[in-house]
Amino acid sequence: MTLDFVEPVVFGVLAAGVIVAGAAVVLINRITAAALLMAFTFLCMAGMFVLLGAETIAAFQVLIYVGAITVLILYGVMFTPQADRPYALFFQKQTPLAGVVVAAAAIPVLLLSFSFVGAVPKPGGDDLPALATSVFVDFAFPFEVASVLLLAAMVGAIVLVKRDEDSEARR
């Protein structure tokens, strides 16, 4: 018995997950639920990467998007005062216009995506050494400079937001 049918089925499930959860993120009124659904779309995307044989990217997708970014958004929700009325009200007037804009952007993408039908993804697996080589050998210098950049940005962010010791002491 051949298992060829498994891959399209899994893809179908994941694609449905991405689309349904993505639509729900936009349509749903409760912001916490929307954030969690967004995490779910990210998770489905990670599944897609696994399907394509890019396990390392899938792992990063889970670590960065499902883990860090979702937690960041949930913290953001937690620290923001929530209004009682549903915020969907604000968007009602713009719905038709938004529909036009989305259609204008989506239809070309949709048409374009059919041009990839014949393309066969490369056999996957074992992409970690390739990634490590490109980060730590080929692109070593820009990578290291980028890490200095992050350090500088972090120092800068702390300088700009930390409490003023002098004014604290005066109080």
Binding site: P142, V145, A152, V155, L160
Partner: peptide
């Protein structure tokens, strides 16, 4: 181009901080 862009950002981002220090 990659080195140049990373260098450009590392040059300017501290300057934003310096302006608002």
């Amino acid at each position: 181009l990659i080195t140049l862009f990373v260098g450009l950002e590392l040059m300017t981002i501290p300057i934003y901080v310096l302006a608002g220090i």
